[in-house]
Nucleic acid binder design. Sequence first.
DNA 1: ATGAATTGTGCTTTATATTGCACATTTACT
DNA 2: AGTAAATGTGCAATATAAAGCACAATTCAT
Lengths: 69, 69
Amino acid sequence: MNKSEIGKAIKQRRKFLRITQKELSEIVGLGLRSLIDMESGKGNSSIDQLQKVISALGLSITVKVKENE
Amino acid sequence: MNKSEIGKAIKQRRKFLRITQKELSEIVGLGLRSLIDMESGKGNSSIDQLQKVISALGLSITVKVKENE
DNA sequence: ATGAATTGTGCTTTATATTGCACATTTACT
DNA sequence: AGTAAATGTGCAATATAAAGCACAATTCAT
């Protein structure tokens, strides 16, 4: 998954949980602006930021050896 | 996986491929210092940095709904 | 259709990552 | 053990992300 796809996964999950960006940004303690950029794949957020959002949404991040496609 | 575990995965993979940190940093176009911090889980690198390293090592990053543990 | 909430953008300031350097420590080879 | 390569750390300069603001655009309910 690339940055943009990660953003989409976050957005999708957030919507599934029926949380607004503003709510999530407050829960996570992250600027609304940064969250918007993260979801749209525009910014270049830090791992810490990403982790906060991901864990708040009940998601997890995994690094593994790439499968052959 | 948290930041530190991701770093370990990177380090493990790099060693498996018998590449030095310096070599990898040059391949990826990333400062040696940053790579060291990334592997040891000390820094707080950006997604772009992380992605570069990960893809150079034939790894991939995935975000998915967290399993029940 | 319209009004309100939500999402998104340009700009600026502030906070923080990135980098290189010089040196310390650890690892690996003979 | 001795030496060279590899890995790691403190510090300073530079590059870039984070945040808030004001406003625009879109989405959503009534």
